[in-house]
Design a protein around this nucleic acid. Structure first.
Length: 420
RNA sequence: GGAGAGGUGGCAGAGUGGUUGAAUGUGGCGGUCUCGAAAACCGUUGUACGGGUAACUGUACCGAGGGUUCGAAUCCCUCCCUCUCCGCCA
């Protein structure tokens, strides 16, 4: 959420930011509403002051058994007027909230202006392209090894769901455990294993709602949502809290399955694991002081890259342009791994600085100094990493001529086997 | 799912519809005493928004939201959460 005062003072920047992010929020009414709001507040507060003063006088008169009928009668009028103005104020604030809740975060100064993925900047590339001895994609490989069953996933749940089987299931668990342990041992994280179903307030807090409502599985009976990422429960872990500045940065990582309806994306990258309704992911969430968030974004991205490096996968890092940067994010780096079978790049991580945008919505603050005024924290998150596409890259990158797949060494202690 | 109890400041815990932003205790901070500390004593101690250079000042906040009333922590309604018991259950 943007600060109303910031909007008031930077209305043209806000307008431009909406346009650069390919959003369509209409803010024409907001300045007028804001002005009206402040006017009504002044009016109603001065009336409340009158009421408070006279009410005390009435109390004194009553106490000394004197007549207070005149004052009570005049206060009835004042009280009615207050009620009227309070109603008006409530309506104005609802109207303002409706607009503000739909305004995207301001992008940072280094974010290139652009409309689509074509305008993203390649920041760096690691490793080199590996050509396969025999060209196969992950679906063919997985079928031949009988480690993933897409057909039965479709039968039991629907398209976009799969079973992992045998060594495939164990490899998936190995990836998750390896990633979490790596962050705990090398990057100083605390692990959280979160709830996978969250309430509406949490979804608003991190900014999935109202914009992404169509993309989430919604349990309407209880008004709860299946999480599209562990970012939601991990960030809302500190919802409505005052954090201790001495303990910051606070770094959590956690595993969760991620559920996405992917409404409207049929036909695009739907084969196999490229786009699914449920996938596994290890997520990192950071709470930092406001002056630290830009540096932390660089470090966080590095922490995600460490995992890809350890797995020995060829990858590149992109700085997303304004049009590709998500609603809540001020700046995002995507990490993409090379898929030799698809001969294309697959997004496996997205690392973002949300500045104070989520912290305002979720009301997460800290006191810079013991007696200083509270400030909103800055939140960041990064996938570290999403496993389904890592599985694609692993199967294709380590595919051998004889049909086997070599397991990278860092996973051996988790899998117990060295090849598929 | 059923029955009951309860949600008040950092914590504990009072609170007859009328100077109650809220007693008291405790904790925090400052001070007196002390070589120093403890104890004792004195003072101070919430948040948000608005006005003012400032001292200061206005409004709101007792789980959340409505309502009754001249006036609500206190009365009424709805919802949320916690605890106890019963039922069901991995």
């Amino acid at each position: 959420m943007l600060d109303l005062k910031f909007i008031r003072e930077n209305i043209e920047l806000v307008r431009e930011n909406i346009k650069n992010k390919n959003e369509s929020a209409n803010i024409d009414s907001i300045l007028e509403l804001d002005e009206k709001r402040r006017k009504v507040i002044q009016e109603v507060e001065s009336l409340k002051n009158v009421r408070n003063v006279v009410t005390k006088e009435i109390a004194e008169l009553k106490k000394s058994k004197q007549n207070a009928d005149d004052k009570i009668a005049s206060m009835k009028e004042v009280s009615d007027k207050i009620k009227e103005l309070d109603d008006e104020l409530r309506a104005i604030e609802t109207a303002i909230d409706d607009v503000v809740i739909k305004l995207p975060n301001m992008t940072g100064p280094d974010v290139p202006v652009g409309r689509s993925a074509a305008d993203n900047q390649i920041v760096r590339t690691w490793g080199s392209i590996k050509t396969m001895p025999v060209k196969k994609n992950h679906i063919e490989i997985a079928r031949a090894l009988d480690i993933i069953d897409f057909e039965r996933g479709g039968k039991v749940s629907g398209s976009g769901f799969a079973f992992y089987k045998g060594k495939g299931a164990k490899l998936e668990r190995a990836l998750i455990n390896f990633m979490i342990d790596y962050h705990l041992d090398n990057h100083n994280y605390t692990e959280l294993l979160p709830p996978f179903l969250v309430n509406r307030n949490s979804m608003i807090g991190t900014g999935q709602l109202p914009k992404m409502a169509e993309d989430m599985y919604h349990a309407t009976e209880d008004d709860m949502f299946l999480i599209p990422t562990a970012e939601v429960p991990l960030t809302n872990f500190h919802n409505d809290e005052m954090l201790n500045a001495a303990e910051m940065p606070i770094k959590y990582c956690g595993y969760s399955p991620c559920f996405r309806r992917e409404a409207g994306s049929y036909g695009k990258e739907v084969r196999g694991f490229l786009r699914v309704h449920q996938f596994n992911k290890v997520e990192m969430v950071n709470f930092v002081k406001k002056e630290d968030s830009w540096n932390r974004l660089e470090e966080l991205t590095g922490e995600a890259e460490d995992i890809v490096k350890a797995l020995g996968l060829h990858y590149r890092v992109l700085r997303l342009c304004t049009g590709d940067t998500s609603f809540s994010s001020a700046m995002t780096y995507d990490i993409e791994v090379w898929s030799p079978g698809e001969e294309s790049w697959l997004e496996v991580s997205s690392c973002s600085n949300f500045t104070d945008f989520q912290a305002r919505r979720a009301n997460i603050r800290y006191r810079p100094e013991p007696s200083a005024k509270p400030e909103f924290v800055h939140t960041l998150n990064g996938s570290g990493l999403a496993t389904s596409r890592i599985m694609v890259a692993l199967l294709e990158t380590y595919y051998n001529e004889d049909g086997t797949v070599t397991i990278p060494e860092c996973l051996h202690k988790y899998t117990g086997f060295h090849s598929l």
